[in-house]
Design a binder for these strands. Structure first.
Lengths: 188, 188
DNA sequence: TACAGTAGAGAACGAACGTTCTCCGCGCAA
DNA sequence: TTGCGCGGAGAACGTTCGTTCTCTACTGTA
């Protein structure tokens, strides 16, 4: 038998992909079982309910997202570049063939009204992202009001790209961000 | 018996409110029946399936949205003010007690992957909105590239407000829009 | 009054789903 | 070898839901 940690990861990874591709409610636990290769009995010994699995998947997505953002920003040398790197990161993501929008936004739209645990997990990840942006804005020496503006651009780019099916929103948002940063830092 | 048009409207209105509040999949046709006061048999004579009802509800939302936007922009005297009025409209909307985000974004997150009819209806309404913004941007004499930037701000404000539960995103997006418009029109 | 047609209320049906249970096989201790 | 505990596969259970069907009441007509 595979150990608990491996089984947990297999279930979360399989559920993540299924939930993201088809939507949470469209995926039955049977499908998760088949994709993960872990028996239902085992799944329910690892997660008390589907709701708990959904929250675990969201937390998993958070770490993936944070890691991706960190990797992209590593290449940047200044705070300004690190801010703009957010939109390069989005651009690369939007171009992935199975891109289907932000999983947090999608899941919130689907279950935010019903499950407060889901709503909390989503809110938490957005809050973390906003804090990340706020830190970079402080580093770049711009007024704090710039941070939510850039975060809103990033959110808007994600929903726009998801609905339109085109990655254009990333560079459009990047251009807007550049203007806002320039004005806020007195460059323009 | 009430006439067809009235029954249709009652069903759409009831379904709209239920879908928006609880999410589409969380609402059964029984709940729609009870809320609308129209028998299931009648509902299914007006709409071939729940999917068709969902699309009808989305179209209904589109007209509501367009009308609200038109009303808000009536007060504005210049194209610039009409562009900014979009964000005042959002601000008023975000403050409504039962605000739960953009119904189109939510429904797309919930069913966009499963139902192409839903995805189409959502894409259509976003496209209409983008064209509206593009027209105002042309009126204000700014380069066309400004339009998608403002549209992205509006989208981002909607998801941010929905998830955070606070209306702040409206005025943050408005401030960003003001900066972008000023730069694009050479005011700054 | 008798009758035909229609619409409403909700029971019924079949499918899907979350969750639990049963059965079987395997590894291990004595 | 025998017995035991544990885990896997998936059948089973109870519920929910979309959709259809049945029965009843009512309206209008002769």
């Amino acid at each position: 038998m595979i150990d608990e940690k491996t089984a947990r990861e297999a279930v979360i990874r399989a559920a993540d992909e299924l939930f993201y591709t088809r939507g949470v409610q469209a995926v039955g636990m049977d499908a998760v079982r088949t994709a993960a290769g872990v028996s239902l009995k085992r799944i329910y010994s690892l997660f008390a309910s589907k709701d708990e699995l959904i929250v675990a998947v969201l937390h998993h997505r958070t770490t993936i997202w944070d890691a991706g953002l960190a990797t992209t920003s590593e290449r940047a040398t200044s705070a300004r570049e690190r801010l703009l790197a957010i939109f390069d990161f989005l651009d690369a993501w939007f171009r992935e063939p199975d891109f289907r929008g932000c999983a947090f936004i999608n899941t919130h739209g689907e279950l935010g009204a019903t499950s407060s645990a889901v709503a909390d997990a989503v809110r938490e990840q957005k809050r973390t992202f906003q804090e990340y942006v706020a830190r970079l804005v402080a580093d770049v020496g711009a007024p704090p009001a710039l941070a939510p503006q850039l975060a809103i651009l990033a959110e808007g780019a994600q929903t726009t790209a998801a609905i339109s099916g085109s990655p254009d929103a990333a560079h459009q948002a990047r251009a807007a961000a550049e203007t806002l940063i320039d004005v806020a830092t007195g460059r323009r």
